[in-house]
Every structure is written in structure tokens, then in C-alpha cells.
Simulated scan of single mutants.
Amino acid sequence: MKELKEILTKVNSKNNRNNITFLTGAGISSASGIPTYRGTDGIWIKGTKYYKPESFGTFEHFSKNADEVWQYTFFRKKMFAEAKPNASHFKLVEIENTLQDRFHLITQNIDNLHQRAGSKTVYEIHGNLREMRCADECSKDVYEMPKEIPLKAIDEDLSYDEKKLLVCPKCGTDTRPNILWFDEFYNERNFKLHTTLKIAKNTGVLIILGSSGATTLPNRLVEQTIKYGGAVIDVNLEDNNFTENFGDKKQFYKFRGTALDFLTQFQEAL
């Protein structure tokens, strides 16, 4: 990417608002064997065996089918556990070690691969599958998912004893995965809304890796970065919502290729 050195030179010359921030989506984990969401082979396009996920992935569906959603949750945990961080995850760790406090990593992914690769500070704006919380929001507490429940195959149900482990210890009602569903809103407590917007405000260049920009907060992060003078580089295989929403901005750049290709060039330019 011919503009990359010029962008980094400009960012490095600043005394403030010179952070380098990465925003990652499902595309960065595709090399680990985890399906993307809205690409041509994405699970939101093809659906699951039983549902289209855009209707399955809602609190409304969970409130009527909690057992079913929990079973699918432990199936997804199995998929994530069997996957391994790929070269792009490890390159981000190397970049973090180089940039130190100027580096920020914001992810839409709930697969835990960044942490397993060694990333130290990760802002998970869509939550994660390590935690659960009260479905009735009786408190602000978040709990670790019970390790006693084994990971499940797609057609393997939870037992009665396993379901008993998925109740709120304070009020006894159902818990829920600590993730953001389609019919819910971002907040600071669970999804770092204000923290990540502040990071974007102080970002010299925001690099999008494998996100299609189909949800609101990622678009707000791009908007915030551009508003305060930062550049945005969209690294994806194809055009997407970011292209449509910000493609006419002079601070918006496109890189069409893999995350690994870009990160290799980025390290050389850095």
C-alpha cells in the first residue's frame, strides 16, 4: 500500500492523538477455520442447520428458547476451543510489543483468539463466551461460565444437572451469555462503548481488519477517528458497509487483500 509509510510518518510526528488502533472482525479469524459472518461463506448468509442466525441471535429468541441457545453456545465454544490463533493474531502481538502504550486492539470477535495469541489489552465490544450474567439483570455482576459443562457437538443437548449450573447465584433465574445480540444496544459496562470512542478520538490511524461494518459501534469508531483528524485503513477482501459509509472521505483508505498481507507490509513500514 503506497500511502502506508506516509500515513505512519504523519502519525508518528504527532505529540498527541497518535495512537495506532486496530479494529478486528470475523475475517481475521477465518484463517483459523472459524466462519465469517457476512462474507460469501458467512454463517449469517448460509444460516445454521436449524435457523437463520439473524433471528436466532436475539434476546427475544433466548427468552423463549434458553436451553436451545445455551446448547448452541457450548457448541460454538467447542468450535473456538478447537481453533488456533493464526499468523495475523501473532503479528498483532508483535506490533503491540513494538508500540506499547500507543497500541490499542478493539475486537468484535468473541472467540478469545487474540488473548490466546498473547494480546495483553483487548476491548471486546461484542462480549465473549467466557462469561455469563443474569438474564434479568438483577446485578451488574458477570460470572465465569461453568467449567464443569463440557463443550458440545451441534446435536448434543445439555443435561439437567448442567442446566442447573446456568442460573444466577443471586436471584436464581436464568443466566445468559455475556454477548451482544442483534436486538440489544451497546453500553459501557459490558461492551466498552465510551472507552472505545475515547480511544478512537485519540487515534492517528485506525486499521480495520476483517470487519464488514454491519453494526453501529464500529461505524461510530471510524466516524470518531476521522472527525478528530485520524486516518482509517479498511483491510478487507471486498468492499463493505465502511466503504459505502466513508469511501468519499479523504482520510479513508482501502487495502484489498488478507489481514496477514497487510500486517506484513505494516510491520515493514513501521
Rank of each mutant, 00 (worst) to 15 (best):
M1I: 05
K2L: 11
L4D: 13
E6F: 00
I7D: 08
N16F: 08
N19E: 14
I20W: 02
F22K: 05
L23A: 08
G27C: 07
A31V: 01
G33E: 07
I34E: 05
P35G: 09
P35F: 03
T36S: 14
T36V: 07
W44D: 12
K49S: 11
K52G: 02
G57F: 14
T58K: 12
E60S: 14
F62D: 10
K64M: 09
N65D: 03
N65Y: 15
D67A: 04
D67M: 02
K77Q: 15
K77L: 10
M79W: 13
E82R: 08
A83V: 15
K84G: 01
A87Q: 13
A87N: 06
F90M: 02
E94K: 15
E96M: 14
N97P: 04
F103T: 11
L105P: 11
T107A: 05
N109S: 04
N112Q: 12
G118F: 06
S119C: 13
K120D: 09
T121K: 13
V122R: 05
Y123K: 03
H126D: 06
L129V: 11
R130G: 01
E131K: 05
C134V: 10
E137W: 10
C138A: 02
C138M: 07
K140C: 04
D141E: 08
K147Q: 10
I149R: 11
D157Y: 09
S159E: 08
Y160S: 07
K163V: 00
K164G: 12
L166Q: 04
C168T: 04
K170P: 05
T173V: 09
T173S: 11
T173F: 10
R176N: 01
W181G: 07
E184C: 03
Y186Q: 12
N187W: 05
E188N: 08
F191D: 13
L193F: 15
T196P: 00
I199W: 14
I199N: 03
I199H: 02
A200W: 01
K201R: 15
K201S: 10
I207V: 14
G210V: 05
G210L: 14
S211K: 03
G213A: 09
L221P: 10
E223R: 13
G229L: 02
G229P: 03
N236E: 09
N236K: 01
F242R: 01
T243M: 00
K250F: 14
K250D: 15
Q251C: 01
Y253S: 11
R256H: 07
F266I: 04
Q267S: 00
E268H: 08
L270K: 00
